[in-house]
Amino acid sequence: MRLASFNVENLFDRAKAMNLDTWAEGRVVLDRFAELQKLLGQVTYSDADKARMATLIIELGMEESDIGPFVILRRNRGNLLKRPRTGGVVITANGRIDWVGSLELRDEPINEIAMQNTARVMSDLNADILGIVEVESRPVLTAFNTQVLPAVGGMPFNQVMVIDGNDERGIDVGLLTRNGFVLDIMRSHVDDRDAAGNPIFSRDCPEYYVTTPAGATLLVMVNHFKSKGFGSTQSSDARRHAQARRARDIYEKRIAEGFDHIALIGDLNDTPDSAPLAPLKESTLRDAFTHPAFDDGGFPGTFGLGNAGNKIDYLLLSPKLFDEVERGGVFRKGAWPGSRPKRWETYPELTEPKHAASDHAAIWVDLNI
Rank of each mutant, 00 (worst) to 15 (best):
V90S: 12
T177K: 11
D107S: 15
G170Q: 09
R193M: 08
V220G: 01
L125T: 03
A34P: 02
P300R: 06
F144L: 00
A256M: 14
C205K: 06
L56G: 10
A93Y: 01
S202H: 10
T212E: 02
F144N: 06
R32V: 03
D273S: 13
L11E: 00
A17I: 07
L39E: 09
I91K: 09
K50H: 06
T351G: 09
Q159E: 10
P300N: 02
G306A: 03
P292C: 08
Q159K: 06
D267Q: 11
I72W: 07
L36I: 03
S102R: 04
H189K: 05
L316F: 14
L130N: 05
M186C: 14
H189M: 02
P272C: 08
W344K: 09
I171Q: 12
D194E: 06
P337C: 04
I369H: 10
G153Q: 04
R248E: 06
A119D: 00
G87H: 06
N7V: 00
E108T: 04
R187E: 14
A278H: 14
V330G: 05
T217R: 13
G334M: 10
E352M: 13
R32W: 15
D124S: 01
P353C: 08
N223R: 03
S188T: 13
G258T: 10
I132L: 11
E252M: 12
E25H: 10
G153V: 04
R96L: 02
L11H: 01
T118D: 02
V133C: 13
V160Y: 10
D296V: 02
F331V: 00
L11A: 02
P139S: 09
W344P: 00
G95E: 00
V182C: 05
V148G: 00
F259S: 12
D204L: 02
A242T: 13
P272Q: 08
A127R: 08
A93N: 04
L125D: 02
G297I: 08
A17H: 05
G304H: 08
S339W: 05
E352L: 09
G328Y: 08
A256Y: 13
Q234C: 00
V43A: 15
N79C: 03
T86P: 00
S137E: 04
P199C: 06
M115F: 04
R27V: 15
A238V: 07
